[in-house]
């Protein structure tokens, strides 16, 4: 029944409500949706939807970004963004758009790359949270960097300092921030209210 009540249309609104209404400064929220693959017998968490808010301190994020991504990396990111923009707009030639030629920040890139990812049978941070039915809250760049989960390490490389995965009825809500944010029962409660569809 919980799956039947799941409403894709309101998913974006709920992700937005979760981080826009939070006291803490979250950079993004992603809902990883669970599905069962009958051919392999595996439970897969795939991209459901995501809301990217960005960093509050733009100057700080730009400085950080400059340190971590080379000119070649920036060119690569912009090229991919241009191609994706063409794909979405349906045009055959890559669009020339001032907005696309603006620097692609590390967290924007991390969010975009996340759309291509999935987690099988308890793999990765979201998979572990779902498989064990327990939230995972990792605070601090050091802890992310030393995590056994590839996604947590990747998040740290792209400037995140906090990553959280909270299991819900048919998936996992993941939040990330470039700020250091400690565990709060308030956020857990909000996820329970907004994402437990039954």
């Amino acid at each position: 029944p919980s799956v039947a009540l799941f409403n894709q249309d309101t998913l974006q609104q709920r992700l937005q409500a979760l981080i826009e209404g939070a006291r803490e400064s979250w950079t993004y929220a992603i809902f990883w949706q669970s599905s069962y693959d009958y051919s392999s017998g595996a439970t897969v968490l795939g991209w459901g939807d995501g809301y990217y808010k960005g960093e509050d301190d733009k100057a700080k994020s730009k400085a950080k970004n400059k340190a971590s991504s080379s000119a070649a990396e920036q060119e690569h990111r912009k090229k991919v963004l241009r191609e994706l923009n063409s794909l979405i707009s349906g045009s055959a030639t890559p669009a020339t758009d001032d907005a696309i030629d603006e620097e692609v920040t590390d967290t924007e890139w991390f969010f975009l790359v996340s759309m291509t990812q999935s987690f099988v049978n308890g793999g990765g941070l979201p998979g572990q949270a779902f498989f064990n039915s327990n939230p995972i809250w990792v605070t601090g760049a050091d802890r992310l960097a030393s995590s056994p989960c590839e996604r947590a390490r990747q998040g740290q490389v792209f400037g995140l300092q906090t990553m959280v995965c909270i299991p819900s009825a048919n998936g996992v809500v993941e939040l990330g921030s470039t700020e250091v944010i400690f565990q709060s029962s308030d956020l857990m409660h909000k996820v329970r209210v907004l994402f437990n569809f039954n």
């Binding site: 733009k58 991919v80 963004l81 994706l84 979405i88 001032d98 907005a99 603006e102 759309m115 291509t116």
Partner: peptide
Amino acid sequence: VAPVPQARKASLARFLEKRKERVMNL
């Protein structure tokens, strides 16, 4: 660029649109 599954297209379109807004507001 690999084909984007339909379910992710909406997310991608929204992300690109919001990015445009963010850049305009810089």
